[in-house]
């Protein structure tokens, strides 16, 4: 399973991200990632944003498994409860990313 995460926006407009592949991680870490990604319930291609807010963080998570790609875009106030644990796992791993590399 491949999981990509991007964080952008906020007052500072920083773009950060991380790309993970469970098959290339230590077995226990890979299993943890797969468990969190499966529990997130991310399916299809969905965007859930707060319309009137400004300077919120934008989060994008892309999950690729068995040739199926699912992607969710959301912000601080529209984080689905099921996605929160995966977000908490991915955020500390995100590093500054040049705009070209941030593209999914």
């Amino acid at each position: 399973m491949k999981v990509s995460f991007r964080q952008s926006g906020g007052f500072a407009g920083l773009v950060k991200g991380v790309d993970l592949d469970s098959s290339k991680m230590a077995a226990d870490q890979g299993k943890q990632l797969e468990k969190l990604a499966s529990a997130s319930g991310i399916q299809g291609n969905t965007s859930v944003r707060t319309q009137a807010a400004r300077d919120q963080f934008q989060y994008d998570i892309r999950i690729e498994q068995n040739n199926t790609v699912s992607q969710l875009s959301f912000d601080d106030h529209t984080v689905p409860a099921a996605v929160q644990p995966l977000l908490a796992y991915l955020k500390p791993q995100a590093k500054p990313m040049p705009l070209d590399s941030a593209k999914f």
């Binding site: 859930v48 707060t50 319309q51 106030h77 984080v79 409860a81 929160q84």
Partner: peptide
């Protein structure tokens, strides 16, 4: 989301 009580009047774009 976990803090619905404090944001329940936000306009949401879905």
């Amino acid at each position: 989301h976990p803090h619905q009580h404090s944001h329940d009047h936000y306009p949401i774009e879905c």
